[in-house]
Computed example of a mutant assay.
Amino acid sequence: MDMKRSLLRAGLVLAVALGAGHLMQKLADSRTHTAELATPQPKKIEKVSAGPQAAPAPSPAAPQVALAALTAETPKLPPLTLLPRLPVLAPPAAAKPAPEASVAPDCTPRLSLTATPRAMITLALNAPCAPGQRVVLRHAGLVVAERLDAKGQLSLDLPALDDAGQVSVLFSDASITTASAALPDTPLPRRFAVQWMADDSFQLRAVEAGQHYGDPDNVSTEAPVSARGGYLISLGDPTLDLPMLAQIYTWPADAKTTADPVIEAAVTEVTCGRDLLGETVQSRDGKATVTELTVAMPGCDALGDILVLNNLAGNVTLAAQN
């Protein structure tokens, strides 16, 4: 009896369990059906690779500000180490301009000749690289030596002895500079010159019409211009080591005025007892003629005497004056 009850109780329990399971199944089916009706079915299903799915990103939360609690002690920072001051740099110096290439001076001598009244030639010589130098001037047989000034310049008036008016300048290095101042239309006056070198000294005197030799109005270095218009010019620098000197006499412009040039040679300790050498230059009608001059001087017992050479326009004669 008890067994049956137990079995019956068991059957009832099982029945109840089965009934409960059937009821649970019904409820589950009902929920599923309801869910299927409520949830729309996707139109398209995409396959994705297997693997862990990323969790959905949480919605951003409002920023939280956390204030650190102040402590009673403030941490001490290490002392600052100051960097040394930067040196004050001076402004860059302005670049110096490159020195200009030195230009060699133009040492070319320049000789200028100009025909001036009374048949004169004005000479201007500029040789900047030859200051103080000795130069030799040549013109129509006349030869004299002059000295350039501190700037290498020389200016003088030269009596023209021919129509060509050519003048050459010889420098110490043997170079020559030449120029001309032609006087073809200028009637040249009659002229007479004597020239010499170094100690072979001569003096020129002119005795014009109506005069006698030795008169105070003779044309000489003491009275270089006469009342009649005759004049005497001395050329050359006597202070040079080898002087080359000359004296030129010009006749008066009036052709009726006669003149007799005279050469004097003084007997000195330097000239006595030897021959003096020189040259004469005569200019007539624009033509120059050069003649050698040799004078045999008396012995030194005649110191102070003067030898006089006259008639130089024609034949030369020699006379002595005590």
Rank of each mutant, 00 (worst) to 15 (best):
M120L: 10
D215R: 13
A124V: 14
V144I: 14
P97D: 09
A182H: 01
V225G: 00
S180A: 15
N218H: 01
L156R: 04
R110N: 12
A93R: 13
R205L: 11
A93T: 14
T108S: 15
P216A: 11
G132F: 04
D162Y: 08
A130S: 14
L183C: 01
L123V: 15
Q203R: 02
R190Q: 10
R118V: 01
K151L: 03
Q133V: 11
T177H: 11
F171N: 02
R191I: 04
G214H: 08
P184C: 07
P189Q: 05
L111E: 04
P184H: 06
R138M: 10
P131C: 03
L125D: 08
P91F: 00
K96Q: 12
L148H: 00
T221Q: 08
L113T: 03
A98F: 02
G214Q: 06
P92S: 03
R205S: 02
Q153F: 02
P159W: 05
R205K: 07
A198I: 13
G152C: 06
D199A: 14
A93Q: 13
G165D: 02
E222D: 12
H212V: 15
T114V: 13
D163F: 06
L148G: 04
T122P: 03
D106A: 09
V144M: 09
D106L: 13
D106K: 12
C129V: 11
L156F: 09
K96P: 03
S175L: 07
A95T: 15
